[in-house]
Design a protein around this nucleic acid. Structure first.
Lengths: 350, 350
DNA sequence: CTGAAAGCGCTTACAG
DNA sequence: CTGAAAGCGCTTACAG
């Protein structure tokens, strides 16, 4: 027995009366083992409950079967749903996940996190951080200094040469606004997320395009910059109505801010959707029980997580079979499409 | 250079003109290195960007500097907040986190997860799964088959001989109910979580104790068993009022169900808190912007995660210095206390 | 204060 | 189909 009393391949080999690498062959499902030897070893493994030391295996194979996942704090709705998809698909494909949460999207910890991942010999990295401020700069750093495949998921998708899975955020803005126009809105206000967030800017661009080119002329209303919180949505409605008392609809860039809008509308005695239609983004579970139930735009975040794992896995396999170089994946960006979930906070199409 | 072009301790040693284990001493901050040797090696390490292979280090040291974290899906409010605390404190203490999400609290995957963790040589395990149905049985399995320290956090705390960090769930029920009584409620209904969840039963017990022994006689109202979802809270209020039309307060076992209650109250034309006081549990961020803002009971979940990491780390250190055995930690349970957050959905103390 | 030797538990060529 | 040898990149005693 080895240190800490764990079983090693040698104990199995002795018990089976074979050499260690015959056991190794069985553990790795190699074809070149005699059927009865194979069965005998399998039985012994099951009996004594042997499982190979992945640290040792990793050392010889040059791969750890671990995926590094870097995500922003789970307080944001998006990342935690992406993480669920990542976890599921990673388990499916036999990877463990090394989780690294960062606290602010523009953190300074990136080099430390990368070197930690690097030291642990992760086979690949999934980078699930929204693009905020100038943090896109990292990605170059990332591509150059990590000798393993990296896939971006979420906010940074499509903005670098790295392969990525993203959501079409401009379409989010377009779909929400088109829905409001269809319901008769002609003065559509916007509560956007922080301007340094790419996702916020894209959603805003979708709103802008759609209001500008509507058949009813320019239907764009006032703008307020929130910070994703419910409180900022609440403040936002007050400001927006002060700027344009005739505003008849609001597109809020996430559900939490939309909730703040609903709250403020109650306080102000504005009926939703009678006086004011409201649309959010995210489709958080509580949304269908807001008062009134919130119309929102759903993003397929779990799918994005699943796809991200498949993409790194592809790259890792290609790399292992020596047919390619670390970040020589096709720099493919997959854009997933959002869809509107119509509930009662917006007037239905006329 | 080694495979995959990574730098090894040998490259550093050659560049510095010393042996490998002198470099090793520097990497591990051993005191017995000549000051100038130390500095020279440090400089070279920084220059060429060497970082040690943790797989190899783990193999020799018999520890991985990885903590296995087993948690239930992040859709539940509690676990994702616990995870945030865990991540933060693990980073602080130099551990990586190997995340394993399970989908249902009574999953059958436990043996697979444990053997995966075991194979990866985790130094310790944090088990953040609520106690549901008979899944407490695992914990024995867990304690016996894992040769490393385990700490329970959340629902299973205090129910086994394993060390654990928990929240006083009975106090949650008591505090919520006392608050309602203080506001003048005399017929307090309960929307409980699923009966097979220990946390739900404890909160119910707190409610039951408090209503039964109130100075105003038995103030317990009707009970409805929800499933933690907003929809079940909504259905719950209808059922409760059907059973007892004079009910003047509801304690909902989480905020989501409380939201459903608020929603149903609007639909039924019951004023909150005028006709009906409502209290939830969790203090989710949106709660302060419900209509009306929700009174709730806060649980210090982040703290629980931090404490859990400290507890395993203690045990790991003790084990490493060979002064103890794997699960010979004091089987200490730390109970953290909840507190009421008073907002507008409940009548203030008279 | 520093180094040569051995070993952690596996897998990868190389023989046979 | 199976095994003896060497090595992955570190660290742990043991010398000096």
């Amino acid at each position: 027995m080895s240190q800490r009393g764990r079983l090693t391949i040698r104990e199995v080999a002795e018990a089976a009366g074979v050499s260690a690498q015959t056991v190794s062959r069985v553990m790795n499902n190699r074809p070149d083992v005699a059927p009865d030897t194979y069965e005998r070893i399998q039985r012994i493994i099951a009996e004594i409950g042997y499982s190979p030391n992945m640290l040792a295996r990793g050392l010889t194979q040059g791969r750890s079967h671990v995926l590094g996942v870097v995500a922003i704090g789970l307080d944001y709705f998006g990342p935690s749903h992406v993480l669920t998809g990542i976890d599921q698909q990673a388990a499916e494909l036999g990877y463990a996940i090394s989780l690294n949460l960062i606290h602010r999207p523009e953190t300074g910890d990136v080099p430390e996190i990368l070197s930690g991942l690097f030291a642990r010999q992760v086979d690949g990295v999934i980078w699930a951080i929204p693009q905020v401020g100038s943090n896109l700069d990292w990605s170059h750093h990332l591509a150059q200094h990590l000798p393993v495949p990296v896939v971006l998921v979420g906010g940074m998708a499509g903005q670098t040469s790295l392969p990525s899975i993203g959501i079409d955020n401009r379409a989010i803005g377009r779909l929400a606004t088109e829905h409001l126009l269809a319901g008769g809105a002609r003065n559509i206000g916007l509560i956007t997320g922080p301007q340094n967030w790419w996702e916020a800017r894209e959603r805003e661009a979708g709103w802008r395009e759609t209001t500008a080119s509507s058949p009813f002329g320019d239907t764009s209303g006032p703008i307020f910059e929130g910070d994703w919180t419910t409180a900022s949505g609440e403040e936002g409605l007050h400001r927006l109505l002060a700027a344009s008392p005739t505003m008849d609809a609001v597109f809020a860039s996430n559900d939490q801010m939309a909730l703040g809008v609903l709250h403020a509308a109650h306080t102000l005695g504005r009926r939703v959707p009678g006086d004011l239609s409201v649309v959010g983004v995210d489709n958080m579970p509580e949304g269908s029980h807001f008062w009134p139930p919130l119309t929102t735009v759903h993003q397929p975040l779990g799918d994005a997580g699943v796809l991200a794992v498949e993409r790194v896995d592809d790259a890792i396999r290609r790399l292992t079979s020596r047919r390619s170089f670390p970040n020589a994946m096709e720099p493919l960006t997959t854009q997933l499409q959002p869809k509107v979930i119509v509930r009662e906070s917006s007037r239905p199409a006329i």
